[in-house]
Amino acid sequence: MSVPQDQVGENIPPAQKARTIAHMNADHRADMRHILLHYGAVPPVPPSYFSSAGDGGDEGNDRDPLMLDIGLESFTVRLPSSGGEAPGAGDGGNGSGSVHVVAFDPPLSSWGERRERLVEMTRAARDALPSSSAGAGTVVVDEYMAPRVPYDLAVFLAVLFYYLSFALVRAGLVAPGSLAARGLEAARFPGGAAGFRWLVDTIFVPVLGIHITETWWLERSRLRRFGVRRGSRVWWLWVGSVFIEGAMAFKRFDIIVERLKRDDKKKQ
């Protein structure tokens, strides 16, 4: 089967193509699954290829498509080896599976248009999902927003300082006579080093429980709903942020969602 060909007169930089393919495979495999299953201009692909995720499900998995190539006229993906086998099973162990070419209709006018077109196809595919599984409608979040200055960053650093403090206490580096203990005494911390150790140990379970719960809820109510593929780079950035800073990560994620919704309305 042929692979995408660069349009005459357009020289696609190999390094940029490689980064695009790597980015799609790291963060957008579930999006490619939605395009294959629900984008109207794409020849139908049997849902059995993605049976482990379910037709229309939002969670990524090892059977999601892998992008092999992309050009101005189409992109090529490798499908799972079969609906009931893990990649590599039944195909000689090479994980080749089935190769599928998805045409850009119309072809891209330039290489710089690739991201906009892929996002457009993903949103159209998600919009075509049944209402029970569409969830976020056409909004797909594929970005991360770092803690804002000063409030988000202050909370982030404060909680990070607590985790570091707990690690130091557990490592015995706040023992009587240690440099840290002398610093606490000099700063007149209530109860001195002993008071500091007691406080750090006492609040550890509540702090950990709250932040694990917040991490679980962000994944369930935000990341999964708005198409952030589990295990992707963007997913890990959000999970790491919410585990440290908690509620501030929710606020930033919602800011991104609202911006994307406004952008969608402007295009309509």
Rank of each mutant, 00 (worst) to 15 (best):
V140S: 08
V207G: 05
A158W: 11
V200G: 04
I210G: 04
W236N: 06
L164V: 10
D201F: 04
W198L: 14
D152Y: 07
A186Y: 10
V228M: 05
E214V: 01
R197A: 01
L179N: 12
W217D: 08
I210E: 11
A181M: 04
L160H: 13
L184T: 08
V141E: 03
V139F: 05
A187N: 11
A194P: 00
W198I: 02
G227Q: 02
G191L: 06
A167L: 04
R233I: 08
I212R: 07
V200D: 02
G227K: 00
D201H: 08
R225Q: 14
V141L: 03
A154Y: 15
V205W: 12
G231Y: 01
V140G: 07
T213G: 10
V159H: 13
V141R: 00
Y151C: 01
V149R: 15
V139Q: 02
V174M: 04
S232W: 03
G195H: 09
G209T: 07
P150Q: 13
L157R: 14
H211P: 00
W217R: 15
D201R: 15
F226I: 06
R170L: 08
W216Y: 14
A171I: 01
A154I: 15
G231I: 00
R182M: 07
V155D: 07
V149P: 15
R148I: 06
R197F: 01
A158C: 13
L157V: 15
G172F: 04
P190I: 11
R224F: 09
V200H: 04
A134F: 01
A175S: 11
S241Q: 04
A171M: 05
G231E: 01
L218G: 05
A134G: 12
A158M: 12
A180C: 13
V228A: 02
T215V: 01
R170A: 06
S131G: 14
L164H: 10
V174D: 02
Y163A: 09
V140N: 02
A194S: 13
E219H: 13
A158G: 15
R224H: 14
W238Q: 01
L168T: 06
A136R: 05
L173M: 09
V141Q: 05
G192T: 11
S132L: 03
A180N: 12
E214Q: 08
M145E: 15
Y163F: 12
I210K: 08
R197M: 01
G135C: 08
L160M: 13
F189Y: 15
P190W: 08
I203W: 10
R170I: 03
R225W: 05
L179M: 13
F161T: 15
V159F: 14
L218I: 07
L153W: 11
V140L: 03
V149H: 15
V228W: 02
V141T: 02
R148Y: 12
V159W: 12
R220Y: 11
A180W: 06
F189S: 11
L168E: 07
F204L: 11
F204H: 12
R170T: 09
P206Q: 04
D201L: 12
L168G: 04
M145K: 13
P176D: 08
L237C: 07
A187P: 08
